[in-house]
């Protein structure tokens, strides 16, 4: 770890001004610190200034609110608080489950929702700076994972420059439910669809999001919709707790007498970004969910998947995970 300047700010304006100060040294926001501190110790992230926004926690940005427009989750809400929230559990079980199945109790107590969606990949070649080739860490240096140990890597959304998996769970729930994200910077506030927040690696894997320099996530809004109650998150992994997904599926269904009026599907553990499986959703519309339709949807979801060796199994596993999730969601009694 290297020396850095630590600043604690009391309001959003001070935060964004501190981060956006013209000509200032590279800065990072600190909330739960569960990604940032790790990566600073590993020297993957080397901010010269760390701006602690935890003092903002008592403002409305630390709240969970249900309103006419749906559910609003403040960016500084801790994962555990959202997972344990009765309203979230009742109205958007997929959100509560995605959070509850993530990380460990200790991490869920620390990590903020805003930070959670921005967590960095677990790719070893990214996290260990002694590997020379990592386009995400060092643009143009190559990708050691393509021909390396890539069992945990992505089969969807990758490129010849990067196949690092997006490791989170919560984001899958947000993207499935069509959430939007409210942002603030020194230039003002804006709201974008959550689906526009993350960028596929393409040939610039170092650019992971569409956030502008110094821009902060304020909150997430999940619109009220008929499918949020019949929703779930299925996570398949190497052990039963404290482990990232090999494959996961966030599924929300609106059924009309058994037929799918609307299906919302996102996939995790298999892709470089939170992945909305629009083809699978389309394949299910108007159909009853059974083995055949679930399999057809799963095939559609992974039609463009590409394995890189060790992770080839994720294509089959991802399909089976989605099939299982769809069957379970259809069978839910709500």
């Amino acid at each position: 770890m290297r020396p850095f300047v630590y600043e604690r700010v009391g309001d959003w304006a001070a935060a964004t001004q501190a981060a956006g100060r013209l000509g200032s040294a590279p800065a990072s926001y600190l909330a739960g610190g569960t990604t940032l501190v790790d990566l600073m110790r590993l020297e993957v992230m080397r901010p010269e200034r760390v701006i602690d926004i935890n003092a903002l926690h008592d403002s409305r940005y630390g709240r969970i609110e249900f309103g006419q427009n749906g559910l609003r989750l403040g960016a500084l809400v801790r994962m555990a608080d959202a997972a344990d929230h009765p309203g979230v559990q009742r109205h958007c079980p997929v959100i509560a489950q995605a959070l509850q199945l993530a990380a460990s109790a200790q991490i869920r107590n620390m990590a903020s929702l805003g930070g959670n969606v921005l967590q960095r990949t677990r790719c070893t070649y990214f996290r260990d700076v002694s590997y020379a080739a990592c386009n995400k860490r060092n643009p143009g240096s190559g990708c050691a994972a393509l021909a390396g140990v890539n069992r945990m890597h992505a089969v969807l959304g990758g490129s010849d420059h990067c196949i690092a998996t997006y490791a989170g769970d919560f984001a899958q729930a947000l993207i499935a439910l069509g959430a939007s994200v409210d942002l603030i910077s020194a230039d003002g506030a804006r709201t974008i669809p959550f689906a526009k927040l993350h960028r596929q690696p393409g040939d610039t894997p170092d650019q992971e999001t569409t956030l502008r320099p110094g821009e902060l996530i304020v909150s997430f809004t999940v619109p009220a919709a008929p499918w949020t109650r019949r929703s779930l998150y299925l996570k398949v992994r190497d052990r039963q707790s404290y482990e990232f997904a090999l494959a996961s599926a966030a599924v929300a269904l609106d059924l009309d007498d058994g037929a799918v009026r609307e299906a919302r599907i996102a996939l995790g553990g298999v892709s470089t970004v939170p992945w909305r499986a629009a083809e699978a959703e389309a394949a299910l519309r108007g159909k009853t969910i059974n083995d055949q339709t679930a399999m057809a949807a799963a095939d559609a979801a992974f039609a463009g998947a590409q394995g890189r060796g060790h992770n080839d199994f994720k294509i089959e596993l991802g399909k089976r995970t989605l099939r299982r999730a769809l069957r379970q969601a259809a069978a839910l009694e709500i």
Binding site: T124, D128, A147, V149, R151, S241, Y242
Partner: peptide, 25 residues
């Protein structure tokens, strides 16, 4: 322990990626 054969290096050299059972297992 996973080994990257190109470099003869251990890849999962931390307790997050070196898998052992947790209580739930």
């Amino acid at each position: 322990t996973e080994i990257d054969p190109r470099y003869a290096r251990y890849v999962n050299d931390n307790l997050a990626d070196y898998m052992i059972p947790v209580n739930a297992d």
